[in-house]
Design a protein around this nucleic acid. Structure first.
Ligand code: ATP
Length: 659
DNA sequence: AAACACCCGATTTTT
DNA sequence: TCGGGTGTTT
């Protein structure tokens, strides 16, 4: 029976259950199917589903995989699955007491950045010219944890121009760690860090976990980082039954500390590793794989050269250039419309781009034609300011010591700024929400409504959504004075109440929102039942597939993103990203770019060129190309009246790109 | 001194 | 659309 759905290599991976296994799976070679059936086989054999641990890159991926396996056998629903971070959270909630972690709140990226910003200004580093921005500092400190190396080392490798700040940045890190520990706050990196140290230091907990999980599977292993690899090692040291799957060529999270060399390290870490390569692509046509293989050939150095093969054939991928992103968007919208009229399901169509903001023109064109779409990637609903404001009130009730949340809600009140917040923080007892001592002092009467709210919602018997309703009532006037576009935002808040319905405990709601933010905005939630076109960043499209794929904005500088500090390794990652993008397509692939004039002189020059990833495809004729007449930027229709003194208004308006 | 209002500029990717 | 920086108001 397996014969008809799995090839030899896949069957070997599915049927080998003991010992360490490394599955090297090229794009579209059926690794998802392997994980699905291996889970099923294990359960069929009588293995307790709870003793199977499936670690994936997103929670969505885990849920999907288990849902598929559950179609063969319902028990698959009970398999332990999730991301490294959600697994860490669950484990720490269960065993954290032993290491002094009682209840805690998880900080999302925004919260962590805010904290770093606060510490930078406390240390008066903000006033120094050239001190890096808070998000850069956070990135550096985060890599310290994820790659398990020193600040100095990171600076030397990736930010040589910031080397002089090594000690200051280290100090920020130390202070941030102290701050978080005192207030029971954990960020994403802390989750991994604490999990790792518990496994390392606490023998009792380690053996309990070893007893619990006998079969471990890790998906997307090429995008794990050092600390995750160590955790895998620790976990697998129990039963020794560990299977990891990955594809070096699809490693796209280096910026977050991922190291695809983990794939190479794995057989060294686990001596008796069986390696199983999957090489037949079942997803795409030959013509699409020619494009993918062209990208493979572009890779610098040796090692990644193995071509993908398939025996299905179809239409040749196309590359089209446009004079503006608006024209590009119009063309795609029309193309989607006609495909749909020809009977293609919108669910089988995706538009992929490098950065979330690049889909804006297309969103307008799709909306104008009434084509339903859903966008993945970019700023999420729960990361918008107004939703974070509301959630901060709930956080304060859950964890009275969450000073970051206190800060946020206090700053919303008229007449309260940084200094007042500092005063309030030092002068009041946070453990009681009454604010007694404060309210008696003159000047703080403005705080009365806030404390009344907090008292009101600090009750066990209220559900999370009831609490949120109260908060939103209090917050609405603030929202209206703060934002002109408040009607839309009020809708979002109603959606928030909907999203909170399933939760029993406030903590679970808050942690889930941090770890797995719902990624649809309110409007899209209401239309979610029907077919829709997917708009997604390439990162968020990882592991997925569609009949028709458009890869847009393929201009040099945009895809790949090239910045003055970009190194060869960065470009190589961009190239892998492009590879991931084109390998999502099953039948039809369109690559597009727009070459409108940009406002900046420098940009304009860059923008006029096509992506360095596309050029070789034209040369080797693996794409059908439709180029603008004059490809030399200096002679293009827009630059003939372009001189140092000319203004943008010289250019016909419809061809001006505003992005 | 602290809070606020306004303008400018730039814009990766995410657990 | 957002955040940061600067100049103005309380
Ligand atoms: N043995 C097989 N025979 C026929 N089709 C298969 C086989 N294995 C997998 N497929 C199909 O091939 C496609 C790609 O499979 P899958 O999504 O598992 O690939 P993948 O390895 O996860 O790809 P990627 O790494 O690019 O995300 C799917 O549509 C799947 O149904």
């Amino acid at each position: 029976m397996l014969n008809s759905i799995l090839n030899q290599a896949q069957q070997k991976a599915v049927l080998t259950h003991d010992g360490p296994i490394l599955v090297i799976a090229g794009a579209g070679t059926g690794k998802t199917r392997v994980l699905e059936h291996r889970t099923f086989e294990l359960i069929k054999k009588g293995i307790d589903p709870k003793s199977i641990l499936l670690l994936t890159f997103t929670r969505r991926a885990a849920a999907e995989m288990l849902a598929r396996a559950a179609r063969h056998d319902r028990r698959a629903q009970d398999v332990s699955g999730g991301t490294f971070h959600s697994f860490a959270l669950a484990t720490l909630q269960r065993y954290g007491k032993a290491v002094g972690l009682e209840t805690f709140t998880v900080l999302d990226r925004g919260d962590s950045e805010e904290l770093i910003g606060k510490i930078i200004s406390d240390l008066r580093l903000g006033s120094k010219k050239y001190f890096p921005k808070k998000h850069t500092v956070l990135n550096i400190l985060s890599k310290t944890i994820n790659k398990d190396i020193s600040v100095e080392q990171i600076l030397e490798d990736e930010y040589p121009h910031l080397y002089e700040w090594a000690q200051a940045i280290e100090l920020v890190g130390i202070n941030a760690a102290k701050y978080k520990r005192q207030r029971n706050l954990l960020d994403f990196d802390d989750l991994l860090y604490y999990l790792h140290s518990i496994l390392e230091e606490n023998e009792m907990i380690r053996s309990k976990i070893h007893e619990k999980y006998h079969y471990i599977m890790v998906d997307e292993y090429q995008d794990t980082n050092k600390i995750q690899a160590k955790i895998v090692h620790q976990l697998a040291n129990g039963s020794g039954n560990i299977l990891v799957v990955g594809d070096e060529m699809q490693s796209i999270y280096r910026f977050r500390g991922a190291e695809f060399t983990n794939m190479i390290e794995f057989p060294r870490l686990f001596i008796k590793t069986q390696q199983i390569p999957l090489e037949t692509n079942y997803r795409s046509t030959k013509e699409i794989l020619n494009v993918a293989n062209n990208v493979l050939d572009q890779v610098e150095g040796e090692g990644f050269k193995k071509h993908l093969t398939s025996d299905r054939s179809g239409q040749k991928p196309e590359y089209h250039q446009f004079k503006s992103s608006r024209k590009e968007a119009e063309w795609i919208a029309e193309k989607i419309l006609s495909s749909s009229r020809n009977g293609e399901s919108l669910d089988e169509i995706a538009v992929l781009f490098r950065a979330a903001y690049q889909s804006a023109p297309l969103e307008i064109e799709l909306a104008a034609r009434g084509i339903p779409f859903k966008k993945f990637g970019g700023i999420r609903f729960v990361e918008t300011a107004h939703v974070k404001d509301v959630l901060a009130h709930l956080k304060v009730v859950v964890n009275h010591f969450d000073e970051l949340a206190w800060r946020r809600i206090l700053l919303l009140i008229d007449g309260i700024g940084e200094k007042s917040v500092e005063n309030i923080m030092t002068r009041s007892d946070l453990s009681e929400l009454k604010g007694q001592t404060l309210l008696e002092q003159s000047g703080y009467f403005k705080l009365r409504p806030l404390f009344e709210l907090l008292m009101k919602i600090n009750k066990e018997e209220l559900t999370s959504s009831e609490k949120l309703s109260e908060i939103i009532n209090y917050y609405k006037p603030i929202l209206r004075s703060k934002y002109d576009d408040y009607p839309q935002r009020e809708q979002d808040l109603d959606a928030l109440i909907e999203l909170s319905q399933p939760y029993e405990k406030d903590e679970d709601l808050l942690n889930d929102f941090a770890l797995d933010p719902p990624d649809q905005s309110a409007m899209e939630i209401t239309t979610a039942d029907n077919e829709y076109v997917t708009l997604s960043t390439v990162h968020s499209a990882k592991g997925l597939e569609w009949g028709t794929v458009f890869v847009i904005q393929a201009q040099e500088g945009k895809f790949p993103i090239v910045r003055p500090e970009s190194k060869q390794v960065d470009i190589e990652e961009e190239r892998r990203l492009f590879y991931v993008a084109v390998t999502r397509a099953k039948k039809r692939l369109f690559i597009t770019s727009s070459h409108g004039s940009m406002r900046g002189f420098y940009d304009s020059w860059y923008m006029s060129k096509m992506s360095r990833f596309v050029e070789p495809m034209i040369e080797s004729k693996v794409v059908e190309s439709n180029l603008l007449q004059e490809s030399n930027p200096w002679k293009s229709p827009f630059s003939k009246n372009y001189s140092f003194g000319s203004s943008v208004s010289d250019i016909p308006e419809e061809d001006v790109d505003e992005f």
